[in-house]
Design a protein around this nucleic acid. Structure first.
Length: 506
DNA sequence: ATGTTATGACCCC
DNA sequence: TGGGGTCCCTAACA
């Protein structure tokens, strides 16, 4: 039985039936910023053309040492996975204690001859074309999974090109803080949503979105309810530029491109795993796994992404050291909380992290966590109902914005961490997303200290931008392309690009 | 403790 | 075409 008393994979009912495909949508607002930015965009397009051209050149004849090594890695990986016969082994030998799934063969054996389309005399009936139906397994095996898109053919040139692009744009630079793109009233009013910037990326409702820090190309990722991760290259020359991977079996509730090396896409799921998609090796490695607990969110503790703080649904947090996987350095500490919805690390003093639970929001020191209950450094007071998220402001960490079910967005002054921190600003905001929608999470614009973004229930459907004073700066709406509630958003670290994931499975 | 209800948007009939 | 079913890791309130 599930010890966390909430829900985890052990207490889940088996899937009742296959659901029809209902793709979730992803919205992108992009800016056309006056003359200078237009110029930059034109330059970017020219640069991209060059990159593409160079890529073609690279692919055909002259490979750099790096490219050769990467291709070698990919080939070795493919051979390795082939030698493991992973998929076969996994369907034959399910995880211990896990109810074995019926194999296709077993299912067929139980079908009547009519359903098998075989005449009782034994003469096969005319075949109807087989429906290619993606099989999503409830349980994924431990260890690395191959990075093979589920929506592309196996040896697709498009996929190779896409993985190459991801690698290349990640090499260019680690996050550059060129703040020319920070939201302002002028820049916000120039941001538009076009038809091209709306597409279906994953099957079900979106639980998390991430945006690649590249300034030359726009690459976004969306994690959905069924464990899919959809990557969308908006500058793709191909038809849609969407590549879907299935590295998880349950909702992907938290996802970041590693800010220190964006060839890595880290994703966390309710299925009790944290994975790291490494495009250079074309695998989704397993970073952390719990057989007992379901995870809610994570953040990077150390500057180099080597240690993570992972929030669990049972209220604990785990400190995970990626350099020593599976060892005792994975400390699990009780937070005296019913659930932990989000964890977020202080941007300057990285030993502090804030945990938002169903009952309270507290700041802890990661260095002094004890296994049985911890006293927080600070308690953010004032929430009267459950809290969906709490995030430090991105530059100094001197502000925290929380989203609470009591229909209030609250901003706190965390410049000095006293034991109880009062509310600085409270904004009335309909957060009543109800049962079917992903809860809102107000997030900061990573480029500035005082500006946050949140989805909205207001009609027409919109995404709102607030200042930490509580003043609403802007509201994005577009009756043609933004037709449903956009619960989850992400903002590019240097450019004026806002990504929104829609929640209700459209 | 236990039951009831509201909530958005898509899909299917 | 419109209305009912379904999703569902909620939470407030009776």
């Amino acid at each position: 039985m599930c010890p966390c008393n909430i829900y985890c994979k052990r207490s889940l009912e088996p899937k009742k039936k296959k659901r029809p495909c209902d793709f979730a949508q992803c919205f992108i607002f992009s800016t056309v910023q006056a003359f200078l930015c237009t110029l930059c965009n034109i330059l970017n397009i020219i640069l991209q053309s060059n990159c593409f051209y160079l890529f073609v050149q690279d692919g055909s004849s002259q490979l750099s040492a790096y490219e050769r090594k990467r291709l070698k890695n990919i080939t070795e990986n493919a051979n390795f996975f082939a030698s493991l016969k992973l998929l076969e082994a996994w369907t034959r030998q399910p995880l211990e204690g896990v109810k074995p799934k019926k194999t296709e063969a077993e299912t067929v054996r139980r079908r009547s001859m009519r359903l098998q389309r075989v005449d009782p005399s034994g003469v096969p009936l005319p075949e109807i074309p087989a429906q290619p139906e993606p099989v999503i397994d409830e349980y994924l095996p431990p260890g690395p999974l191959p990075m093979v898109p589920a929506n592309q053919s196996k040896s697709s040139e498009l996929t190779d090109a896409f993985l190459d692009t991801w690698t290349k744009i990640s090499q260019v630079s680690v996050v550059i803080h060129s703040f020319w793109g920070a939201f302002s009233l002028t820049s916000l009013s120039h941001m538009i949503l076009s038809e091209d910037a709306v597409t279906k990326v994953v099957k079900n409702r979106i639980y998390s979105v991430a945006i690649h820090p590249s300034e030359s190309r726009t690459l976004v990722a969306a994690g959905d309810k069924s464990g899919q991760i959809g990557l969308w290259d908006l500058n793709s020359k191909s038809e849609d530029g969407v590549y879907v991977f299935i590295p998880h079996s349950q909702p992907v509730s938290c996802m970041y491109f590693s800010p220190f090396n964006p060839v890595h896409l880290l994703s966390l799921s309710h299925d009790g795993t944290v994975r790291c998609g490494d495009v250079t090796r074309a695998v989704f490695e397993e970073v952390y796994r719990s057989e007992e607990n379901s995870f809610s969110s994570f953040d990077f503790l150390a500057d180099n992404a080597s240690t993570l703080v992972v929030g669990q649904w049972d209220g604990d947090v785990a400190i995970v050291d990626r350099r020593t996987p599976g060892t005792s350095s994975e400390l699990t500490a009780n937070m005296n909380s019913k659930t932990t919805r989000t964890v977020h690390v202080h941007p300057v003093n990285r030993q502090y992290f804030i945990a938002a639970g169903a009952v309270n929001v507290c700041i802890f020191d990661a260095r002094y966590l004890k296994p049985n209950g911890n006293k927080p450094i600070s308690f953010l007071s004032g929430h009267t109902k459950s809290v969906a998220s709490a995030y430090f402001s991105p530059i100094t960490g001197n502000r925290v914005v929380t989203t609470c079910a009591d229909d209030t967005l609250r901003v706190y002054d965390t410049s000095s961490l006293s034991s109880t921190i009062p509310v600085l600003t409270a904004v009335r905001h309909n957060n009543n997303t109800g049962r079917w929608l992903t809860r809102f999470r107000a997030i900061w614009d990573p480029k500035q200290e005082d500006c946050f973004v949140v989805g909205s229930m207001a009609r027409p459907r919109q995404i709102e931008i607030f200042q930490d004073t509580g003043e609403q700066l802007h509201s994005f709406y577009n009756v043609d392309y933004l037709g449903s509630v956009c619960s989850i958003n992400a903002v590019h670290p240097t450019k004026n690009i806002l990504v929104g994931g829609n929640s209700s499975g459209c």
